[in-house]
Design a protein around this nucleic acid. Sequence first.
DNA 1: CTGAAAGCGCTTACAG
DNA 2: CTGAAAGCGCTTACAG
Lengths: 340, 340
Amino acid sequence: MVTIGDVAREAGVSRSTVSYALSGKRPISPVVKERIQTAVEELGYTANAGAKALATSRTHVLALLARFLDDEFAPAMLEYILGVTDHARSLGYDTLMVTEEDGVRALQRLSRSRKVDGFLLLNVSEEDERLDALVKVSQPASTVGLPGRTGDVDIFDLDFAAAGRLMVDRMHDLGHRELVLVSQPEHVVARGGAYVWRLADAACERATQLGVTVHACFGSSSQPAIGEDLHEVLDTHPNATGLLLNNEAAAAALPNVLWSRGLRAPEDLSVIGRYSDDFARTFSLPFSAIDSAADELGRAAVDRLVGRITGRVSDEAPPGVELLAPTLTDRGSLAAPPGR
Amino acid sequence: MVTIGDVAREAGVSRSTVSYALSGKRPISPVVKERIQTAVEELGYTANAGAKALATSRTHVLALLARFLDDEFAPAMLEYILGVTDHARSLGYDTLMVTEEDGVRALQRLSRSRKVDGFLLLNVSEEDERLDALVKVSQPASTVGLPGRTGDVDIFDLDFAAAGRLMVDRMHDLGHRELVLVSQPEHVVARGGAYVWRLADAACERATQLGVTVHACFGSSSQPAIGEDLHEVLDTHPNATGLLLNNEAAAAALPNVLWSRGLRAPEDLSVIGRYSDDFARTFSLPFSAIDSAADELGRAAVDRLVGRITGRVSDEAPPGVELLAPTLTDRGSLAAPPGR
DNA sequence: CTGAAAGCGCTTACAG
DNA sequence: CTGAAAGCGCTTACAG
């Protein structure tokens, strides 16, 4: 393997000069810099990552702790993961993908061995034991997902409460007065998936203020069960003119449900979902939706984390909670209710 | 941070003794071993990964090069990824998830910097430029996916040709004489997704031998487009009694397509798909299917790769091609054709 | 059964 | 603007 010594010899300078030339941490004469550049390319030199990490205490690796829980629609997870890996790379970081059952152990192992510079937590629940482990650790961390207790690490999430209000407001503005809201399965909530009730509670509260009726219910997270759930919900509430979906599986199933009932959106039913653009593409979903912003949230979490690692974000800066304002992408499934 | 020196001091021995005690590479007296164990636990010691990598030239990290291509149903990729990360961890390896556009550059960077011990390639195409880069690199590699040229690295894939024959055989045994085969989109084949035609060609050849008619066609990889494709295919071939699906999106769409046509499987139509058990669960698919064996393939590829890294698999052992025999999971969508 | 020391390949004060 | 040397935290021959 080619080391910094080989480059130094080839360029006729000392190893420290090569190091400085490559890092730019001190001025190097143009001639020497040029010779070093040439040698580097000729030999195909890249600094040994282990040696560099040992000398600098920086690995340029982030740990991504992903969890794949039952009753969660896995396809939606992939976008968060890709958002993180892509943005991390663009900032010069590689991503260690950690899917161990025992996230706490993984975290301790990676922290103590200094294998990573920071931690990114996905799928954070209301009471997440990984957070307790995180505060005892010397590396910084960000989460995507809002836990019950804040202030320990930087937190990023969609503002699900605002999303709930936005859904209701939009429907109300169009003249709808009776809505159905289909959430994720109740298991997800029970396990600590707070985003489910954050959206639902806010939607119901706003509806009450506006004199709108919202029938809130849960739906399965797998196909085709969720399709049957949707049929049942529509049977139960024949006068509802608007459908709100905080459940990716429901969104994926809806086109066929509508088709088989001879219904069209928005002529017969207005629909607002909550999922990502990528998801909409994969499932060719024609529904207006609040963007999950998986990509944006992943980017923001990585950005802050890297900021903490490099010192760009001061150690003194207290951990923050950033709730992304929801945006509604109109795909044409919204209109006034029929008969108005 | 706590180092091996801290443990040595605490246990009253030399650093080398601690190292040997932890690695088990030479006999240590029970008393001393006990003292060291205690010190390790008390201090929460884990060896510094960078230092260890520098000293041993082993990082215990594998690079997973995943590609997310257009016209490919992303949800199916996740299972391969999880198969790899889970099994790697069980063998003591972490997984660096690499999703860069330029896989060749990523490969070179990670190889030269010795950031990983080996490479795992996913979604390998017929002519994959990453393979050319791989042979010039000193770390071993495995692929999941069968490229056109073999012999450079260890290759693992489902035996798609055997899968095609198995599908036709099974249908023929049940008495079916006219089948429809829906493959992945033609773009996927054109780009080098050889598994598509490996299955299709073998199915057609076997059908010819048996006097069975197979209508082979392509279908979209997104929803709900594939649903319309399926309707069209069924309209075009009203006498076909068996449906073969080498297209995950098609499998996901089929329950609703059948439902809306008033058809049942297997009473009206026998169905064999090709996807993974996880996929079947997420989409609650009731169809008999040849298991993609994403998990098994991931495990096998990791296993061999780690074998090469540790020397368990000899350097002399030539790279192999392992095609996994297909297995059909019966979920009750197979029967004799109607009216027999 | 145990220890002192060299070495892995970098970076960075220190010195000029 | 450049170099010699110490040090990061391990492992592993070498010596006893």
